[in-house]
Design a protein around this nucleic acid. Sequence first.
DNA 1: ACCCAGGTGGCCC
DNA 2: GGGCCACATGGG
Length: 205
Amino acid sequence: MKKNNVYSLYLKLMKKYGRVGKWWPEWCCLKKSLNLRQEIALGAILTQQTNWHNVEKALNNLKKAKLLSIEKIGRLKNLAKLENLIKPSGFYRIKAKRLYTFCSFIVKQYGSFKKLMKQDLIILRPQLLTIYGIGPETADSILLYALDKPTFVIDEYTKRLVKQKKLAKKLSYDYLKKLFEKNLPVNVKLYQDFHALIVVDQKKK
DNA sequence: ACCCAGGTGGCCC
DNA sequence: GGGCCACATGGG
């Protein structure tokens, strides 16, 4: 039998860390409230090239302002208030525009966040990728952690790990995504846990 | 005073 | 297809 480096890496990390980091346990759970799912989706945009610590401040500001809602953000008339609330997360002007574009897309195309959840991964992923400010990593993070869809997330940490372990020569997004998915059972919880473990492992270095 | 953080889009070659 | 830049704040 051909040995599977990707899957054995998952087992190794699972053995080493078990249940993972501070905010991951609730993300890596399949039963999440609608509010938490929206927080995760918005957080996925806010965390682009940004420390989680700063993102938390922005999310708390949104929560206090009762604006941690995709439908509310999608219906905003102007973005000044939103920009101000998310300032701690950096790139706040461009991120306010990205949040708004994402949220208004959902409102227009699906009517509500709840209806979006029912959409199929095959349809949804290409749709998300057409939205301004949603690249492959943000799309996959939203799909995997906010919507529990089986798509593997590739980020800078994953690339670093692949390089360290010499799992692949190419480091392009789609190539690595296929590599992981090809060598793992299709399982949302496993994808969630594995990606979280990679981040935790790489952060320690 | 630097340097970096769970990216993305625009522009150039 | 790949390389470089702007985008901005807070923490080490």
